[in-house]
Write a protein that binds this DNA or RNA. Structure first.
Lengths: 332, 332
DNA sequence: GGTCGGCTTGGAATCGGTTCCACGCCGATT
DNA sequence: AATCGGCGTGGAACCGATTCCAAGCCGACC
């Protein structure tokens, strides 16, 4: 593989001059520039990004840390990230995390790092990590999580949960239950509990009761949601509407309803959260949070930070919106 | 950030010795090793992987080039790749490709590259690129595609298409149609046409006719498949069974059937291809190709190549298998 | 006691870029 | 004619690791 030395020798110039040509410095005469460029084309020289990074003291790779990247909400966000990074001069290094140990290892790595910047999705850093990151010179942006003192892109999950519940209340429902995740100690995901809080708020505002058993929390998953729904449907006073903390869980609810012969939306209204790509297909009413946009926005933020911009408003809140489809209907 | 020099100075040794400690060379006395290690721990020194890579002449990042990584089949494969890479000392650099120009740029980059190895999913390289890759010292593995002379992991798409069709024939169907993608000139994806070839073969073997209009090809997508199915259902002799070239397309078929009031599997049997995560949920009978495993296998192959192993059998074929669910039934 | 050989060790050279400093050359100014 | 300034250029130093070579030290052997 040709090096800058080879080019310099063949063109009869010094390495400095070649470097200037590569980096489009104006301090080269047109004649020299042309000659060097010709040699570069001839031998197909490409600078080593490794050597470049070492010399410059900064690399052109961004670490993107995501949890469970099989979840379609994560994939949708990641697509936004990938698209924006693709349009820049940076490369995307992907770290998938599915255990707390992995997460901690990744974070430690991020704080150190030969990566130019770090983007962290949904995961909660400990205070210690936050301090380390803030101290480290490498810029960090969080997606789907608010972190005091560090830039982040987020949506208001509590408000989203409230909107979802109000949609059902507006349809005349009064027996409204919630299917969500247990607070995950190890990962510290908060979106599900925030949405639950929004549900509670809406119920209280409307003066509606939340009977025992109407709040089902379990591990995150379609099959778990299936079980949670069976539980709800077997209550003495089963709900006529269900707020699910995610679309994946809503799918589990729909499945359980179908298996139990409960008609949706005739006998049961179901609203999800996220608006993943399958949601329109299944006719799921849901709270749309712009997954793609959160990723794209965060990546754009990170890149601006790397460009040395100081942002007056380093954090971005994206709105949520109810998308009405076929899984919710007025109480009959 | 501390460097190896700092450590050497503080420990009162030479940089060579520190390097030996880091790399667990046996040529260091226990006493020295302990002292150096202590300094390392004290100041929290981590070697720069950049400098290391430059010095060693090889990096520890693998380029993974995928098309449209929103497609769930691609994501499933990618998960296999990510899991295996995560267990190694390599990092995963993701390149998403959704235009032919991007593809060519990525390939060029791959042949050159400061990446230790390259994994290419589904995409077709030109002969020129194949030559360049074979010539370049960087190992390449292909997934979901056979490439003469280079290692690859693949399944037999024609055989899969044949199996799918035979499943329907075995259920007594004779009017069997096919919904697939048009040959994509720009990307050169071949799986859909291979599956179509398998469908044809099975029909011929069974002595069944393929009436005009029974072969629907269009761009890849759920909505396109929806339209293709409407076309089929409006034929004078509509099919009683449909082979779809992918699960995504099968979803479009199911949707169209539902919209047209055609009962599945009562009036129409539908079989998909891939077995993506949503398939069990929707009860789709499908040809399972081990998406996760193809990715994992390919990554493992690449890593063995990088370890210097010479593989007697550099390519791996993975089997396909019919998974029967609720979308196919005997002809009534 | 001298020589030899085996461990340890220090440090220079190297990887392939970038950047800064010094120098040569030119035309313009006095 | 001498001085000055500025442009274009070459090349050494540097980024932070690895590795190889030379050398110091020690015990063993003759």
């Amino acid at each position: 593989m040709a090096t800058i030395q080879d080019v310099a020798r063949r063109a009869g110039v010094g390495v400095g001059t070649v470097s200037r040509v590569i980096n489009e410095s104006p301090l080269v005469s047109e004649a020299t520039r042309a000659r060097v460029q010709q040699v570069i084309d001839e031998i197909g020289y490409r600078p080593s990004s490794l050597a470049r990074a070492l010399s410059l003291g900064r690399s052109t790779t961004l670490a993107v840390i995501v949890p469970f990247f099989t979840r379609s909400s994560v994939v949708a966000r990641l697509r936004g990230v990938a698209d924006v990074i693709d349009g820049s001069d940076y490369d995307l290094v992907l770290y998938d995390v599915h255990t707390p140990e992995q997460r901690d290892r990744r974070f430690e790595l991020a704080a150190r790092a030969d990566r130019a910047g770090v983007l962290i999705m949904s995961l909660a850093p400990s205070d210690e990590v936050v301090r380390a990151l803030a101290a480290a010179s490498v810029p960090v942006v969080f997606v789907d999580r608010r972190v005091e003192g560090l830039p982040h892109v987020f949506t208001d999950d509590a408000e989203g949960g409230r909107k979802a519940t109000n949609h059902l209340i507006g349809l005349g429902h009064t027996r409204i239950a919630f299917v969500g995740d247990r607070f995950d100690e190890s990962f510290g995901f908060t979106s599900s509990i925030d949405r639950l809080a929004g549900y509670h708020l809406a119920m209280i505002e409307a003066g509606l009761p939340v009977p025992a058993g109407y709040e089902q929390v379990a591990d995150h998953g379609r099959e778990e949601a299936h079980r949670q729904t069976r539980e709800l449907l077997s209550l003495p006073e089963p709900p006529t509407a269900i707020v699910a903390a995610s679309d994946l869980q809503a799918f589990g609810v729909l499945e359980a309803a179908r298996d139990a012969g409960v008609d949706v939306p005739g006998d049961l209204s179901v609203i999800g959260y996220d608006d993943v790509p399958m949601a329109p297909y299944l006719g799921l009413t849901t709270v749309q949070q712009q997954l793609y946009d959160t990723g794209a926005e965060a990546a754009a933020l990170l890149i601006r930070l790397l460009a040395g911009e100081t942002l007056e408003e380093p954090s971005v809140e994206l709105p949520t919106e109810i998308v009405i489809r076929r899984s919710t209907a007025p109480l009959r």
